[in-house]
Amino acid sequence: MSEALAAPDTTVDLAPRNPRELVLRNPVMAASGCFGYGQEYAQIIDVQRLGAFVSKGITPKPRAGNAMPRIAETPAGMLNAIGLQNPGIRGFLKKYPPIWQHWQVPAIVNISAEAVDDYAMMARLLDEAPGVAGIEVNISCPNIAAGGYCFGWDPEMSADVTRAVRAATTLPVIVKLSPGALDIIGVAQAVEEAGADAISLINTLVGMTIDTRTRRPVLANVTGGLSGPAIRPVAVRMVYQVAAAVKVPIIGIGGIASLNDALEFFLAGASAIQVGTALFVQPGILMRLIDEIEAYLAANGLNQLGELVGRAHPAHRADVTADSDVALAVAEG
């Protein structure tokens, strides 16, 4: 008998500098707001096989969400303005962690707030909750103290939230960046410095669509978050830029709908990926990606997923100098 080839190593350590650890069996995660609380998809896929999943965004108080319509389809994408409908941190804690504590798959809780103290309060409550493997901090929220300016658009405000959450919990903390930031590199470096274990990006881009028959915005909320394949090139670019500027692991998000899309993110520097909108179209996509990533590594003679991460960067490309690549990142014309 010939010795069977060992399966490639797809594990990912998302919190290497945190003793509480966040090690995923594979790099495939479900994105916040697109996977409910894990149970919704459990009836149709084997949720336990996932690298991890991220819950719907939780807020300090229960929220009923926005008026309908909340969703509008756009070219190769969609706009959503759900309005963070959720039971609030206390209602959430009673309901979901007790279920998750019997699950193998790491459950990550996405938190949103409009004040730094509220982020910290939620992180404190989550710290000892059973069945919670980590926190993803959604900083694409208006900061009431700054007149509604989005936390995630400003490096200082992003760092304030990160620092407060870091101080409130020893759980692994992932900070999820907003693509609305003018200086995405500055925000990434600020949250790394402030104690983020990992960075995920991107959240949705703010967009809008108008019904020409009624002459009104389609969404009741007027604007919404753009997601799906339409945003993928923006997301790949931001992951690429951030990967060159920070050391913490990066989770790539934005329009991933196939193996090829996932590979783009790994090559740009992501250690793991999240899938959102594509789940609505192909509920089996996460299971397929897990299998296809492993098969790809094996077929290409790679022993570890890590061998792929960041390979598109100049250090790995003999033909390019770092300088010419920076120029590429800046030139948009």
Partner: peptide
């Protein structure tokens, strides 16, 4: 009738 995305209760886009 509501506009839907996931069809599985996960996205909360279709509420009444």
């Amino acid at each position: 009738e509501r506009t839907m995305a996931c069809g599985l209760g996960a996205c909360l886009g279709c509420v009444v």
